[in-house]
């Protein structure tokens, strides 16, 4: 009886239902969207990180290099070098700023020195606008003919012009912001005109000031000579 009364050890049977493989497959089906979302999130994060990296990189160090191209359409006018003078922290003039200043130098040479010879006209307003208000006042007071090639005979043949490479010297203030930049170069031209050929030699130092992000000429030192070309002048006592 005892034996019959003992509870019978019953080996538990798994409930009827899907097998382990089936459950795994089902789980896999359920988690696939999550996996896709995770992969997508990772991809988005990677793209965002790359974007931030490259974007920040372009902010800190603009992907601009110093141009060695001529900034004049008429002659070889290139940057010869840049020197930095720091009143505060040690900083260097950014290439894009140097390029902007060189462009202004090129506009001055083309528009202020060569174009008036070609046309016989006064220098255009866009060239005068390269100068700040104080310098424009000084120009208007009587120095235009020195700073520009105004009032000289008009070209009647090809102009031959050249210039030394432009040396920039940049001054930063106590905060490391560049406030003034000098551009120093010499310019030479042989100018055939209806009244004969003459040579121009200019020693030019333009001082640029940063006016709200635009570089304007706030000072200048110009030494100028216009002389008859040697071949058309004789020297010595008349016979």
């Amino acid at each position: 009886m005892r034996g019959s009364l003992e509870p019978r050890r019953v080996r538990s049977q798994p409930p009827p239902g899907p097998t382990r493989a089936e459950r795994r497959a089902a789980q896999t089906r359920r988690s696939r969207p999550l996996q896709l979302i995770a992969v997508l999130a990772v991809v988005i994060l990677l793209v965002a990180a790359a974007f931030v990296f490259f974007f920040r990189d372009s902010d800190d160090e603009p992907n601009v290099t110093l141009s060695d191209d001529s900034v004049s359409a008429n002659l070889e006018l290139t940057l010869g070098g840049t020197a930095n003078v720091n009143a505060g922290p040690e900083v260097q003039l950014a290439p894009d700023q140097a390029n902007l200043i060189m462009e202004a130098v090129g506009q001055y040479v083309d528009g202020g020195l060569i174009e008036p010879l070609r046309t016989g006209d006064e220098v255009g307003d866009e060239v005068v606008a390269l100068f700040d208000a104080g310098a424009q006042t000084r120009l208007a007071a009587g120095e235009r003919a020195l700073v520009f090639e105004e009032g000289v005979p008009q070209l009647d043949d090809d102009l031959v012009a050249s210039a030394t490479p432009v040396i920039l010297t940049a001054l930063s203030d106590g905060d490391g912001t560049f406030q003034l930049v000098t551009a120093l170069f010499n310019y030479y031209a042989t100018v055939p005109t209806g009244e004969g050929t003459f040579d121009i030699a200019r020693s030019t130092e333009l001082v640029f000031i940063n006016e709200a992000g635009t570089w304007k000429v706030t000072g200048y030192d110009v030494t100028l000579s216009r002389t008859p070309t040697a071949a058309t002048t004789t020297t010595g006592a008349a016979e």
């Binding site: 001082v207 200048y220 100028l224 002048t233």
Partner: peptide, 18 residues
Amino acid sequence: EGETWFQIEFVGEAHYTG
């Protein structure tokens, strides 16, 4: 000799510092 063909001969300076 000694004659200059044209009259363009000029040497000058301009300075402005503000």
